[in-house]
Design a binder for these strands. Sequence first.
DNA 1: TATTGTTATACTCTATAACTATA
DNA 2: TATAGTTATAGAGTATAACAATA
Lengths: 147, 147
Amino acid sequence: MVSLPEDALGKILLLSSLVSADMARFEESSGLTGARVRLLWVLGAHGPCTQQALAGQLEVTPRNVTGLVDGLVDSGHVTREPHPTDRRALLVTPTAAGESLIAQLRAGQRQLAADLFGDVSEGLLADFVATLDETIARFAALMEDTR
Amino acid sequence: MVSLPEDALGKILLLSSLVSADMARFEESSGLTGARVRLLWVLGAHGPCTQQALAGQLEVTPRNVTGLVDGLVDSGHVTREPHPTDRRALLVTPTAAGESLIAQLRAGQRQLAADLFGDVSEGLLADFVATLDETIARFAALMEDTR
DNA sequence: TATTGTTATACTCTATAACTATA
DNA sequence: TATAGTTATAGAGTATAACAATA
């Protein structure tokens, strides 16, 4: 059975949509929206952030971050703390509930990785990851070229 | 160098985001939004559809489809044609401009697949696709189990 | 009685532009 | 003068619920 480039891309797209569906289930069960979960994810990765920093990480306008943080304050997942040295800025900081949700996100991702790839032999997994790496590198080059 | 399950999942997520970014560029250059492009893609795959059918394929409410089709009618990409046998229904049908855009979408995807995987050896590509297949099957089983 | 599409309404995400407070 | 965040406004995508026309 011969595999074509279209097969590989198609299956990657399919897998992407499955991962998205899984994420959507998490969002639904947590009562949060995708945009707000992504913001929490950034807080988990970087620690308390100014809204400017969040806007940069999320590739979204500062105004948009204001709205997302408003929602997360209302739901009790973050607070706006004063910045220690810059009185213009605010540090968006997870509450205990926010930290707990971030921990769930991390655990869910680790579990998913184990469920999907835990049984793949070391050799096959290494080849798979190597092909992914090459593909990502080619993609990055393409995006550069045609920018 | 040992590859971990987390590496594989992380790289798939990264590749997903790159594909999304590529799609966003197409959307911008075509002046259409993602939701409208997806609707056109479904039309390309299935031919003229009722709005009910589109709602099913897009996993979205019929009301939502009304809005998307309104936009695509305004931009000249589709028309609402009478259904030949059911006077309640409308057949959303691509115009020449819509067909042309669908053809561009297909060509773009084929080109991307070639750019990303065209140089991968047949053996490696077959292994890669096989691992993707297994992963997709495991994912589908997971979604069933925990539904 | 059920189905197709629309009107009415509302919420979230997103953006730009103008404004306030601070640096 | 520049930066951080907010108010004001707008548009797109999404949803539910009620309604008209047709099956």
